[in-house]
């Protein structure tokens, strides 16, 4: 199980558990499942989809994975 949070400067947009996250990185889509190695990647312009949760439009920022914690941190994010 992944613990996912989507964070913008103004607020925590989403926090919860899910099986997977698919995000648009700077060079294409990246999918994250439980047990992913620690990673930091820049995000591009596109969507971040939380497994069985909400989706977000995101532009810029980064995604970090540590110990099944996924943080999507971006200055421009809005819920779809």
């Amino acid at each position: 199980m992944l613990h996912i949070s989507v964070i913008s400067p103004e607020a925590m947009l989403f926090e919860g558990d899910s099986q997977s996250v698919v995000a648009t990185a700077f060079d294409g889509e990246v999918g994250i499942l439980t047990g992913h190695a620690p990673m930091v990647t820049l995000l591009g312009t596109g969507t971040v989809r939380v497994g069985d949760g909400p989706s977000f439009n995101v532009s810029g920022g980064f995604l970090q994975v540590v110990d099944n914690q996924v943080r999507v941190v971006t200055e421009r994010a809005s819920k779809i």
């Binding site: 990673m39 930091v40 920022g61 980064f62």
Partner: peptide
């Protein structure tokens, strides 16, 4: 932590420092 970095530390920092 030893992170996998995409594209690399420099590019990430140059994006994050202004932020």
């Amino acid at each position: 932590k030893d992170f996998l970095l995409f594209p690399d530390a420099g590019a990430i920092l140059s994006e994050l420092l202004p932020a």
